[in-house]
Design a protein around this nucleic acid. Structure first.
Length: 199
DNA sequence: CCCTGATTCGC
DNA sequence: GCGAATCAGG
């Protein structure tokens, strides 16, 4: 398989939509996620954050042990002049999936430091198991602050934003989701908990 | 062990 | 240019 125009187009589109490399590879077929990532890099669209985003925060310093003794005389330490504003914009808008629940909670919590409590889907039609899991996870949550939120931290808000007793879960997010496993469990409930629409 | 993207390097 | 192997991490 080669990178035809259409395939590249699809790649760009999906990557822009935040699809993972493996998903893109699966969609395209005939390529591995490595191929996709490689192509992405070659196309120069490695980070998806359009603005003020921080995407790749990995340490670019790799060291291959043994074997390769490069006779090269390149002494070029490349300091990356990365001017990162200390003001991380919370622009991560986790696209909702099949249901519309996820972002609203975090959103509301962030916007006003006011009265209206975020409509935490805490109760109601959510499986008892998921709820129990959340209760449990709230004990072990990292309890991070707003500024500490990243794409990799669970953004599940807990408590009242107007009080000190407010924090974000902060655990490692589930793949592709804005929340950790437990919170994904309650956020992404298949909305057919009780409703059985018949026709 | 699952997954993610990033990087390297032989082809 | 390509992508498998590898790395680094959630």
């Amino acid at each position: 398989m080669s990178w035809t125009d259409e395939r590249v187009e699809t790649l760009k589109k999906m990557w822009g939509e935040g699809q993972s490399a493996s998903q893109i590879a699966k969609e395209l077929g005939g390529v591995t996620r490595n191929a996709v990532i490689g192509k992405v890099h070659r196309l120069g669209l490695s980070n998806r954050a359009g603005s003020g985003g921080n995407a790749a925060s990995k340490a670019p310093a790799k060291e291959k042990p043994a074997a390769a003794a490069k006779p090269a005389a390149k002494a070029a330490p490349k300091p990356k002049p990365k001017a990162e504003p200390q003001v991380p914009a919370i622009k991560e808008e986790p696209e909702l999936d099949e249901n519309g629940i996820p972002i609203s909670a975090a959103r509301r919590a962030i916007i006003p430091a006011g009265q209206p409590l975020p409509p935490q889907p805490s109760a109601n039609e959510i499986s008892p198991e998921a709820l129990a899991k959340v209760s449990e996870v709230e004990k072990t949550a990292k309890k991070i602050s707003l500024m500490e939120l990243t794409e990799k931290t669970c953004k599940w808000p807990v408590g009242d934003p107007a009080t000190e007793d407010f924090w974000f879960c902060g655990l490692a997010v589930q793949q592709g989701k804005p929340y950790c496993e437990a919170h994904v469990g309650v956020a992404f409930q298949p909305m057919s908990s009780r409703r059985d629409r018949r026709r």
